[in-house]
Amino acid sequence: MALIRSCLAALCLGVLGLLAAGLVQGAAIELREFDDPVLEQRYRSLTASLRCPTCENQAINDSDAPVSGDMRERVYLLLHEGVSDMEIRDHMVQRFGDYVLYNPRLEGRTFLLWGLPAALVLLGGVLVILVVRARRNASASALTPEERARLDALINRERTE
């Protein structure tokens, strides 16, 4: 009984610790007030789709890096100046490079990146069609007359036995 009780106590402490860690973590990223829910939604999706330039794989809405804070601030300000999402992304790319976009743009340099998967799917489809066709033709013309005769003979022997 004492054992169960101490286990429970340890569990509670652990949960509390996790909660506290969560609070500390959350406190690093500021809360912003929005009067307009549309702006808030755009802010959320923009900060989730821009990558923090100094942390290898975190969006700026999820990063404690100072530069991410500056970028969030800039996104917030630009949104309130009536700048479009596209222009805000451009604004960041002009300063921090393509690295900050989680979805690279379709342009000459990224053509292979976007085109290759589509090309591979197409190629796969063509291959499947070719293979299926080849098999269909093969089954139709597989037996020569001699083979057919031999097959018939075998089948007949089976029947008579």
Binding site: P53, T54, P66, F96
Partner: peptide, 11 residues
């Protein structure tokens, strides 16, 4: 960090 932001400084 306003000039640094224009320069794309991240550290």
């Amino acid at each position: 960090g306003e000039l640094a932001f224009e320069l794309g400084v991240y550290g």
